[in-house]
């Protein structure tokens, strides 16, 4: 599964990238929204994980562009505490789930699986 990961905090970006690669996902990291928009077509992700606050182009714009391209691409957004309004807006734009920072990488993994509907599949296999 191909995941487009968008996060401007590069240390975090790197850690999540490694974690997801370790699990077996094909991860493409982007450190700003503009780059993410370019990668939407080039990388054709199955899932997008994006921070809301990004340089140049916000995570909400990335979400909007992804949903405009295909409503079927699931999107998980990262938010900081106190960004309830932005999270609400993200859901209105079609976000599938959100994770509040600080979060555990295990939690992120579970949310990815839930969004992709693979938890049951894993359990059955």
């Amino acid at each position: 599964m191909k995941i487009l990961l968008v996060e401007d905090a590069t240390a975090l970006l790197r850690a999540i990238e490694l974690k997801l690669k370790k699990i077996g996902y094909d991860v493409h990291p982007c450190s700003d929204g503009r780059q993410a928009l370019q990668e939407l077509d080039a990388f054709a992700p199955d899932l997008i994980i994006t921070d809301i606050m990004l340089p140049f182009v916000s995570g909400l714009e990335v979400l909007n562009a992804a949903k405009a391209k295909s409503k079927k691409i699931p999107v998980i957004v990262f938010s900081a505490m106190g960004q309830e309004n932005a999270v609400e807006e993200a859901f209105l734009l079609g976000a599938d789930d959100y994770v509040v920072k600080p979060f555990g990488l295990k939690e992120l993994e579970m949310r990815i699986k839930r969004v992709m509907g693979t938890i049951n599949a894993d359990a059955n296999s």
């Binding site: 240390a11 975090l12 850690a15 920072k101 600080p102 979060f103 555990g104 295990k106």
Partner: peptide, 15 residues
């Protein structure tokens, strides 16, 4: 700064 940035975002054993 990199460690501070990371700690602000991750919890649990990684934090």
């Amino acid at each position: 700064n990199s460690l501070i940035e990371l700690k602000k975002s991750v919890a649990g054993t990684v934090g």
